[in-house]
Design a binder for these strands. Structure first.
Lengths: 154, 154
DNA sequence: GGCGAATATCTTGCTGAGCGAGATGATAGG
DNA sequence: CCTATCATCTCGCTCAGCAAGATATTCGCC
């Protein structure tokens, strides 16, 4: 009994382990989605980044997409070729700056993603429905803290 | 007003989004670890699986490792060749069944992993230190539920 | 005990994602 | 206009992972 506020000694480590296991499982879930649609993990990451940008109301150019995913220009071109060939995105020449190529997601990709990830999202929301403000704040603070710690590791 | 106990309408969705962002950030963190040590993402996943097995007191054979990672036998052999060449694991012929090859992690790999992931783990534990039992239970139940939902998607 | 089926790993040859270097097309500054 | 710069694409290559088959070991059956 040396921890003044900690309720159980190994409980925290157990939760850290559980977060890692959850991360792994979500990764496998994405991999299944990719495999089932003849895609690669990078393609799924690209679609997620594109949809995030769209939700934020931002344009995503080819170069920026490559930067987010850590690809060089050649790999980015090949990626967009794959996605465009699969009918999931389209290239649109930049209006203001005609050097740029803006990548837009087709509705089909959004539907595809929602059909696969929708149930998981709904289930997650349902899991949170039984929580009070105090508990939601704890979950939010924990995830935010871990995310910042992981990002802070340079 | 349709949610009887839900405290805020969009708060749940926000947390789901936050979990995904955290997952992405943890993946990037692993990728940095891999890149910094001249490894590939699969190599890191393999080391994690090996250390998990060791902590659970189980032996990890080459075939089982490949199964966990979703590789076929050829890819598994190449993976173990890489890790062995880097001095991170060693092959040990099975004692009871001499067809098997048991993969054991070298101490060096454990130290390497701890040096990189240790601070993140410690920070996570610290984040949980301020939580009471009620909040810890909420975090645990949420993560467990999401993990099961992701795994349940076949 | 010995023989054939089953099991675990390794070898060979190939496909394709991603990298480095450089070409092509578009814009801005003098 | 002419050059420097920027965004993207093309070419040639490397290497992770797959499919198929070779090799070594064990187990069941007679």
């Amino acid at each position: 009994m040396s921890t003044p506020s900690g309720p159980a000694p190994g409980a925290a480590l157990e939760i850290v382990h559980l977060l890692r296991a959850t991360t792994v499982e979500l990764g496998l879930h994405s991999a299944r989605f990719a495999h089932r649609n003849g895609m690669h993990p990078t393609d799924v990451r690209a679609l997620i980044a594109l949809m995030d940008a769209r939700r934020a109301g931002e344009e995503m150019s080819a170069g920026r997409l490559g930067g987010v995913l850590g690809l060089n220009s050649a790999g980015t071109t090949a990626l967009v070729d794959r996605l465009e060939g699969a009918g999931l995105v389209r290239r649109v020449r930049g209006e203001r700056d005609r050097r740029r190529v803006v990548i837009e997601v087709e509705d089909r990709a959004v539907e595809l993603g929602w059909a696969f990830f929708g149930p998981l999202i709904e289930r997650s929301v349902e899991l949170l429905r039984g929580c009070d403000d105090h508990q939601l704040a704890a979950i939010r603070d924990f995830l935010t803290g871990v995310r910042e710690a992981a990002a802070g590791g340079r």
